[in-house]
């Protein structure tokens, strides 16, 4: 684990801290990192809401085809991301059967990231929701709580650690996503080029230490998110049974 990470950090500072900073603060690099961060945050937020909602429907509602839909949720995990990219291109590209063409727009980046990160929140919330003591909700209702109050004061606080850790994982995944984005985003610098594609293009043009420098920024971001998840996990465990 640590050896390849150390190698990346070492390579990134090949030209000294000055060279590292000049790559990281260069306008294309900053634009790529900003886009990556912005799109990932947006996707993480969408996931937090939509993922919780999907988990809720899958656990609490009964409808025909539920098992099939439940199985489909994992598809973005199972699919090679480049295949996901081709699928998205076919569906939302120039020859879209839906008449929606988002190629080379920022919407495409968000769409691709949302597709590949969908399962994280769903799969982290689902087991917690299944295990959630239904009698807690009945107790709240018997004490006079409306369905919304019951959700807000009883259900949500118990789901929060799972929602947050799923969201953080989705964010971390979105930050580093390459395969699904590379085809549909168009990779236009300053507009739709995400950090991972930026790194790839720098390696292709033999600027390995430049690529490594941006990689280190992504690495630090992921690390911060991981530390954050652990902190939240500990917060959640404090009140657990």
């Amino acid at each position: 684990m640590l050896v390849p990470l150390a190698a990346v950090v070492a390579r990134s500072t090949d030209g000294g801290p000055g060279a590292f900073w000049s790559v990281v603060s260069s306008r294309p690099a900053v634009a790529a990192l900003e886009l990556t961060l912005g799109a990932s945050l947006l996707v993480a937020a969408v996931n937090a809401v939509a993922g919780t909602l999907i988990a809720w429907v899958l656990v609490r509602d009964r409808f025909p085809g539920k098992a099939a839909i439940n199985a489909l949720i994992d598809l973005p995990f199972a699919l090679p991301t480049i295949v996901a990219g081709i699928t998205l291109l076919a569906l939302y590209g120039p020859r879209s059967p839906l008449g929606i063409n988002v190629v080379a727009t920022r919407a495409a980046v968000v769409l691709a990231l949302a597709f590949v990160t969908l399962p994280f929140v769903v799969r982290s919330v689902q087991p917690v929701l299944l295990e959630l003591d239904r009698e807690m909700e009945e107790a709240a209702v018997s004490l006079g709580a409306s369905p919304w109050t019951t959700f807000r004061r009883i259900v949500l606080p118990n789901l929060a650690p799972a929602i947050l850790s799923g969201t953080a994982l989705a964010f971390a995944r979105a930050v580093g996503e390459f395969g699904s984005v590379v085809l549909i985003s168009g990779n236009i610098p300053f507009h739709t080029q995400v950090a991972s594609v930026f790194i790839f293009s720098h390696i292709e043009s033999d600027d390995v230490s430049g690529a490594a420098a941006v990689s280190v920024v992504l690495l630090v971001l992921s690390l911060l998110v991981l530390v954050g998840i652990r902190g939240l996990g500990r917060f959640g465990a404090r009140h657990a049974d």
Partner: peptide, 20 residues
């Protein structure tokens, strides 16, 4: 009437404590 409006207090076998 929904349970909220019946003026009841309900106690469950497994306590149904609000854990959080």
């Amino acid at each position: 009437l929904p349970p909220q409006e019946r003026g009841i207090g309900f106690v469950f076998q497994h306590y149904a404590a609000f854990k959080h």
